[in-house]
């Protein structure tokens, strides 16, 4: 098997998620290559050798400076056609998901996403994914190569094994429509504030809190439990709480011992950032909220009556 791993580079740093997928690919056996695409990225390519890449292809061009998917589809499609890769693996991210799906259409290749694992079985690649709100696990496969897989964030840890990679240039032929969308500005998110990644107890607030000022409830509960407050993309976008607190696909990944969700529906975007939590308690007035599918204790009720009582009871315990 010949596997290519997309190595996402942000500000000149290869992302841990894609290096984790590379480490996994190296264990699948066969030939393993990486591809780094961007502007001024040639220098970071060789570093992927330590994580199991035998060859790293580099597409370094000012037209590839912005983290947009379509020109990257052009580069990888060219590479796959020239080098006949059997598998093309991605670590899930906003960029990688769009890139992988665009590539699937371009190459008429199968794509399986949200994979919680990939393995080799008798020369075939097999993926595992959870479906229907984690109520069922399915094994998925591909009908022939190339096979495209998007692996869930945080599935595989990057393991430095100390090899070295040969660096080669990839051909860069971009389609007109691929370069039509342009990034006109980018604001780097503020990373300051208390770290929710290290907290053992997290109280997370979602849109069900109803208004920014109701985050006080989440803060009080977190304080009495000795935890930190997290949030969802919806409330961050609404301006209720800072980005540093956001958990999910475009926020942080947390693994506290205890996660308490207040008014959080549990959309996939949030779930991927908190499903590794030890114990999950959720309070939501919508009995059909997806978060109940993966909660250890789900409370269907009004958080505005349940949480104040909960705080009172916890305070009384001292």
């Amino acid at each position: 098997m010949k596997t290519l791993v997309f190595l996402e580079s942000v500000d000149g740093v290869l992302q841990a998620g894609s290096l984790g997928v590379l480490s996994r690919a190296a264990k699948l056996g066969g030939e393993v290559a990486g591809v780094v695409i961007g502007s001024g990225v040639a220098g970071v390519a060789a570093g992927a050798g330590a994580y199991g890449a035998q060859i790293v292809y580099v597409a370094d061009d000012p037209r590839l400076a912005s983290a947009l998917p379509q020109p990257r589809v052009d580069v990888i499609a060219g590479l796959v056609t020239a080098q006949s890769f059997d598998n093309i693996l991605f670590a899930q991210s906003v960029l990688a998901s769009d890139l992988a799906a665009g590539l699937a259409a371009r190459l008429e290749a199968g794509v399986n996403w949200d994979l919680a694992g990939v393995e080799e079985r008798g020369g075939e690649l097999i993926g595992t994914r959870a479906a229907l709100g984690d109520s069922v696990y399915v094994e998925v496969a591909w009908k022939g190569a190339p096979r495209i897989g998007i692996v869930r964030a945080g599935t595989y840890a990057a393991e430095e094994t100390g090899g070295s990679a040969q660096v080669e240039n990839a051909a860069i032929e971009l389609q007109d429509f691929s370069t039509a969308a342009v990034l006109v500005s980018q604001d780097r998110a503020e990373q300051a504030g208390p770290s929710i990644e290290d907290a053992e107890i997290i109280v997370a607030g979602g849109r069900g809190l109803g208004a920014a000022e109701h985050f006080k409830l989440a803060e009080e509960l977190a304080e009495v439990l000795g935890g930190a407050v997290a949030s969802t993309r919806a409330v961050v976008d609404a301006g209720w709480y800072p980005y540093a607190s956001q958990v999910g696909q475009t926020g942080k990944t947390i693994t506290p011992k205890l996660y308490i969700g207040l008014g959080i529906s549990g959309a996939i975007q949030h779930k991927v950032g908190m499903q590794g939590s030890g114990t999950i308690v959720s309070i939501n007035k919508d009995a059909h909220a997806p978060i109940f599918d993966y909660s250890d204790l789900g409370v269907v009720g009004d958080l505005h009556t349940v949480v104040p009582k909960l705080i009172e009871l916890l305070r009384a315990r001292g």
Partner: peptide, 15 residues
């Protein structure tokens, strides 16, 4: 919003 911040992206129609 992406993992790294806020992007503003422009494209010509059709899109």
């Amino acid at each position: 919003q992406t993992e790294n911040g806020y992007d503003t992206i422009q494209a010509p129609l059709p899109a």
